[in-house]
Simulated assay, not measured.
Amino acid sequence: MTYDPPRPPGRLLLTPEDREAPARVRRLRLLGLAVRPDPALDAFAGRLADLADAPYAMVNFLVENGQLFAGLHAPRAASTGDGGVLEFARVQPRDHGFCPHVAARRRALALEDVRDYPRFAGNPVVDTFGIRSYLGAPLIDSTGTVLGAVSAADVRPRPWGKAGLATIKAMAAELMGRIERSAADGLPL
């Protein structure tokens, strides 16, 4: 199985290596997660979007060859101007967005303006969806495995501040507790 895109020699590694991928994929399968979108996780993402006052919020699980937004709150599809429709996809490559960085770092990440950081400014979601600010926290289970991340994103630069970091961390802890309780009880989220 391949987990990381090939990197040309001498180029900045824009997507972090995913050394935990095999353990994560096994753990996600054991928990029955990262199979499909989940209405309960969509509701969670909607609540997070409201708390963060952001147009985008996600519950993202990092899977074998990409990412699955099992929970998603996003603006309705928009016209591209040439007759096409632009919609935030539930499955995306690992190099789209910032959640893989949160997982690799194993800690929260707040980007007030993604264009201020060369590593993040060229990310496809910046040009495609106009993402300008990001706030995310890892979903770390009781085994120490990073399953993915919860995040909020905005189309305008904004200071997330200490309150934003506290909120995203608390939401990640809340969701991880719900996931582990539902797995232990054999119940859906």
Rank of each mutant, 00 (worst) to 15 (best):
M1W: 08
Y3D: 09
P5N: 11
R11A: 14
L12P: 12
L13T: 09
T15F: 02
T15P: 11
P16K: 10
P16Q: 09
P16N: 04
R19Q: 14
R19G: 15
R19I: 05
E20W: 05
E20K: 06
A21S: 15
A23F: 08
R24P: 13
L28E: 02
L28T: 01
L28F: 03
L28Q: 07
L28R: 09
R29L: 05
R29N: 14
L30P: 00
L30H: 12
L31G: 04
G32N: 04
A34N: 05
A34T: 02
V35M: 07
P37F: 00
P39F: 01
A40Q: 00
A40M: 00
A40F: 00
D42F: 00
R47I: 00
R47G: 15
L48S: 08
D50S: 13
D53Y: 00
A54I: 00
A54R: 03
Y56I: 06
Y56H: 13
Y56C: 03
A57V: 02
V59R: 01
V59Y: 04
N60Y: 04
N60D: 14
N65W: 02
Q67A: 06
Q67S: 10
H73D: 02
H73N: 09
H73T: 01
H73E: 03
A74P: 09
P75A: 04
R76D: 13
R76W: 02
S79Y: 12
G81P: 08
G81H: 11
D82Q: 11
G83A: 12
L86R: 15
E87T: 14
R90Q: 08
V91R: 15
V91L: 08
V91I: 04
P93Q: 11
P93H: 07
R94K: 13
D95I: 00
H96I: 00
G97Y: 07
C99W: 06
P100L: 13
H101W: 14
R105P: 02
R107I: 03
L109F: 04
L111C: 13
V114I: 10
R115H: 11
P118C: 12
R119L: 15
A121L: 12
G122Q: 10
P124I: 03
V126R: 11
V126N: 06
T128D: 14
F129V: 01
I131A: 08
I131L: 14
Y134R: 11
Y134E: 03
L135C: 09
L135T: 07
G136Y: 07
G136M: 08
P138L: 06
L139Y: 04
T143K: 08
G144L: 01
G144S: 10
V146N: 03
L147T: 03
G148S: 02
A149Y: 06
V150W: 02
V150P: 05
S151M: 02
A152P: 11
A153K: 03
D154F: 09
D154Q: 10
V155W: 01
V155C: 15
P159S: 14
P159E: 13
P159Q: 13
W160P: 12
W160R: 10
G161S: 12
A163Y: 03
A166G: 05
T167F: 04
I168L: 14
A170S: 14
M171N: 05
M171A: 14
L175P: 05
G177Y: 04
I179R: 06
E180W: 06
E180F: 09
R181V: 14
S182E: 02
A183H: 15
D185C: 08
G186V: 09
P188R: 04
P188L: 01
